[in-house]
Design a protein around this nucleic acid. Structure first.
Lengths: 204, 204
DNA sequence: GCGTTCATGTAACCTGTTACATGATTCT
DNA sequence: AGAATCATGTAACAGGTTACATGAACGC
């Protein structure tokens, strides 16, 4: 069973998208490392996830290269913040990067690996996991629907984000439906009609 | 615009799925490193991609831990092969892993980062890229459809792989449709009705 | 008083990618 | 003769995760 998938032609300069995800985020508004980390948990994180040590490390590099500038903001009461802004060189870098072909998403799904090896795994445990996954997809599906329903894009940025939301919604919707179908397919009574090393019913 | 997404609760022991993807693959049939690398380009690669240096490195570790055993096969004419087989300890390891909750797919999409920063990027270049992407999704969609149409699962393994194929198909179908819609939305005449720093038409 | 949030980072480690290396065989 | 494929790896580096560290302020 061959699923022959992606042709990957990766260019080292264009594959490094964390850099660009940060630059693009700073294009909205200047932010501190902490703000960026939150931002990566909330909005842009649907497209590219990153943790805070990664972000601090990358910001230091971007600063050295002059793609972002840093300014210390003294605050009374709370600790000072270092706020990073996109420079003109940074804007040029985004533009140059956007002209390179994008690299297709490299799939890594734990759950699907289990499914691939279905007759070596614990099927009841898999069903529980599948149930949780389905609930997660349904939640996000509803959340995305609700947000998308309220948006009429007024400018280019909003249009881009709405399209992003739209693919997120489609993705979650299909996954939720697939989880439901798969839960049905993995019911004991449906597995009983198959031969296989894990499911062996006596007197059947 | 907050898309609040995944809660990631990663357990270091369960997150390492390359190991398990290899074990599961060897559960089908013993294979050499080279065979595995091809296998990761073809079938299981839809769920988990890996390159050959990764595979050789991982095989060495699995061998040390006794989860796989290795046998040298002397061939006349061509170079010898080292064929790896799943051991009982390896089978136990798969089972234990399958009882841990799976970790959700961590999204990394270059293209969507560009879309997120739409008013900072080169839109004509993005459209070209989108066109290529659409064609890729359509190709895979047709290929998956054709394969799936011919399968009536006779055992547990085949059922698992068919369900995997099914989510792959849904994924490609939605992406292809979304690309088409997005190409339409990004046409100059549709962008002209929006305000925004990139699209500025005189006399409009 | 205690936990949480704000805020910034470092260190160690693991994972993944790219390039290099070798040498035989089979196909054109 | 030259290119592609079989087959196995290594080395260097880049990217990503986890745990550790610090300290102030705010709410309960």
């Amino acid at each position: 069973m061959c699923f022959c998938t992606y042709i990957e032609a990766q260019n080292p300069e264009n594959a490094v998208a964390l850099k660009h995800a940060i630059l693009v985020s700073l294009g909205d508004t200047p932010m501190s490392g902490y703000d960026l980390a939150k931002h990566f948990d909330e909005s842009i994180g649907f497209f590219w996830r990153a943790t805070h040590p990664q972000i601090y490390r990358e910001l230091a590099k971007l600063r050295e290269k002059g793609l972002v500038s840093a300014e210390d903001v003294i605050q009374q009461g709370r600790p000072n913040r270092t706020v990073y802004s996109l420079t003109d060189a940074g804007r040029q870098e985004i533009l140059a990067w956007s002209r390179q072909p994008s690299t297709p998403d490299s799939v890594k799904d734990d759950f699907l690996v289990r499914l691939y090896g279905l007759d070596h795994v614990d099927i009841p445990a898999l069903r529980e996991d599948l149930q949780l996954r389905m609930e997660g997809h349904r939640d996000r599906c509803e959340r995305f629907s609700a947000i998308a329903a309220g948006i009429r894009p007024g400018n280019v940025t909003e249009l881009g984000r709405l399209r992003g939301l739209e693919i997120g919604l489609r993705y979650e919707r299909e996954w939720a439906a697939w989880c439901e179908e798969t839960l049905e397919a993995l019911k004991d009574e449906n597995l009983a009609s198959l031969e296989g090393p894990v499911v062996k019913l006596v007197g059947q």
